[in-house]
Nucleic acid binder design. Structure first.
Lengths: 147, 147
DNA sequence: GCTTGATCTCGAGTCGACTCGAACTCCTAG
DNA sequence: CTAGGAGTTCGAGTCGACTCGAGATCAAGC
């Protein structure tokens, strides 16, 4: 049997996807592989480039907060093939909105943190300048509790 | 004792912060309150506006992925008052970087999802147009496995 | 033949952040 | 006086996503 050029062991797939070997088996069990994973001699898993591609998509979706059950649903729809495009699109649109919401939340947080950073930097600069001028100025108070 | 205008019950604080009553007690126990929470008659917690402000900051930090132990560390530094500004600033800078990294990851993910959305929309539009023209065109294949 | 390292299955353990429930105390309204 | 609702403490339970470990198997190199 011609062993295809692209055949990969679970370890190689782990390297290429950034997932652990354990996680790969776990994902398979959770039904997020596109199709059944081929097995080589000795029952070892054999992956193709397609599997790697699918897994990398899964990694992206996970990395943006999609829970595994939802990824499984998407996988099932894709597996069913033609006729499920509308559902797949709807799922992706929902996820895109979730991603947008996350980005918005992060943006707001970043602004607040940024503001605090500036306040601290100004205060420390001020204190440094004071120390330079006065050689004994204690740090300015009032940076504590208030947001 | 003059009951201050701003005194709030745990339930009111829950409303104002979006945290649950349970979570508020949990946060207190985890040491992320700025100071010890006052107690009213019958041992009930009494919060002031300052507490709400601090909690809202905690909510923002949590919402951007800062783990509770790190929030506790920040709280301890703030509690110690003057002299810890440099450490607080360093902590905030680190967190800002973490936030930036998250945003970057989300941005990349969003692009990928967006691309897939466009592909599906085009395909569905095409199918719709086909159906209009041909009245029997099946959905275009090739939307399955490839990323 | 023997060791080494990767793989296999299966079940259990971990971690973070809450969440829940039980049993009790209070205050207020009717 | 009593019923309801909000509060208290404490410990246990939950959830998601892995992670880990034990014990067995397999392929290659010395």
């Amino acid at each position: 049997m011609a062993e295809r050029e692209q055949d990969l062991s679970i370890g190689q797939v782990a390297e290429r996807t950034g997932l652990s070997v354990h996680a790969l088996r776990f994902y398979e069990q959770e039904g997020v592989m596109f199709g059944p994973v081929r097995r080589g001699p000795g029952g070892r898993r054999v992956y193709g480039e397609q599997d790697v591609g699918w897994l990398n998509l899964c990694v992206v979706l996970r990395g943006s907060g999609m829970p595994l059950p939802e990824i499984r649903r998407y996988t099932e729809l894709a597996r069913q093939g033609p006729g499920t495009e509308r559902d797949r699109l709807a799922l992706l649109l929902r996820h895109r909105e979730a991603v947008d919401a996350q980005m918005e939340q992060l943006r707001r947080c970043r602004e607040i943190v940024d503001h605090k950073v500036r306040v601290y930097e100004d205060a420390l600069d001020g204190a440094a300048a004071l120390a330079e001028a006065d050689a004994a100025g204690p740090a300015r108070p009032g940076l504590g509790r208030s947001a």
